[in-house]
Design a binder for these strands. Structure first.
Lengths: 128, 128, 128, 128
DNA sequence: GTGGTCTAGACCACC
DNA sequence: GTGGTCTAGACCACG
């Protein structure tokens, strides 16, 4: 896996990195159990402060997306969420509504939006 | 229209407010030409500083979502975007990918996600 | 780059500043990627409130003229516009008509006006 | 002459009106000596407050563009400016620079800009 | 150190 | 009454 961060644009680097790791997992390009580069290693290849990489990793660990095994490295966790179904559903619905709001303001039609979503869905790695 | 902001989360107040206004418009609950509460009025009901409300309004005006007529108030603008199609599409696709990443991590299946999206889509106000 | 603002005129300070930055970029005196003075620094040299400088910077960021990288500073963005061609043309034509109206009222002839425009054009940094 | 004001958009009504009168004169559609509608009359047809029309007229009178002859009405003044040539030139050059700055940021080329300006120039009524 | 957010409170322009 | 500008000063997030 190679990641890349852009120092142009206002999204904090640690959050760009966390987002890219989440997306790589969701697309199936990083499988459960896979080992990620060490903090030191990744901070060198991305030319960013090690604290920045560490922050991304610990955030994802708190989310349950990564596991750190001290002395061994950082690994992709098994899929699944600790949250209850109503909580998970509420989060997803809120995000969907935000997306649809954006689609309407960007002047896309119902059918264009749906087609685009279905097209992108085929690129992700869905459960069962 | 009633809006509500939470001061506990990390999302800035002015951005929560802007998001709620955008969503109300996208759902058709705020029609083009409708007048929004005055800055001072809304700042009182939300118990925030008038500058904070004004910031949300002016951001939305820059986006072309609202029109402000000094001395009269703030109004919902006509729909439509001045942005180029490639730019609009890129923005939407990026948002879709972020959403789908979240859906996978929240452990939803392809069909559940699609069903949820189609259900929510029916609540928005699409063009043409 | 040195900027200067006048507090006596009726043009808001933040807008004077934004205009000077836009002009410096259009003349090529501020190249893409160049760093602008920090908000605090510039607010000291101009003797205005930091918020006023920040307002100019964020307006220009919304226009796509500047990029701000929190923690690092504010930089000149890559050139180009995200707006649709008809919108861009309408804006330019409106501004041209306003200019020509002024030229006529200032009692300049057709040839004097054209000569002056061509002279000034040579001082700007045009694309391609 | 018919004028029209838009209550959408942030330009004050009195200034829209003044601008339209200036432009009509510069295009030769209102000749020197022509009589403008009375304040009362115009305020009715535009459906605006009479004070607003009066403000536009008095601003233009101060500029030397209109003359009020009490009891008779408001008339287009003879062309010409009271200002000295260096002052007039400085004003025009400043306006030209502002226009060219906008053209560059709107991503127009040198030749497109010049062509557009020459096209619009032919629609104005130049001296001698 | 950088920019971002929010508050409190003053004054102005417009209608 | 409306929104717009500006100041002073506090606190937070980022690198």
């Amino acid at each position: 896996m190679e990641f890349e961060v852009s120092t142009t644009g206002r999204e904090p680097i640690y959050r760009q990195l966390a987002g890219q790791i989440r997306e790589a997992i969701a697309r199936g390009r990083l499988a459960p159990g896979a080992r990620l580069p060490s903090v030191r290693e990744l901070s060198k290849t991305l030319v960013v402060n090690p604290n920045t990489v560490a922050r991304a990793y610990t955030d994802l660990e708190h989310e349950g997306v990564l596991n750190t095994r001290p002395g061994l490295g950082v690994f992709v966790a098994a899929p699944g969420s600790d949250l209850t179904r109503p909580v998970r559903k509420k989060r997803l619905v809120d995000s969907i509504d935000t997306l649809l709001t954006e689609a309407v303001h960007l002047d896309f039609s119902h059918s264009e939006t749906l087609a685009l979503i279905q097209d992108r869905m085929s690129q992700f790695h869905w459960k069962s």
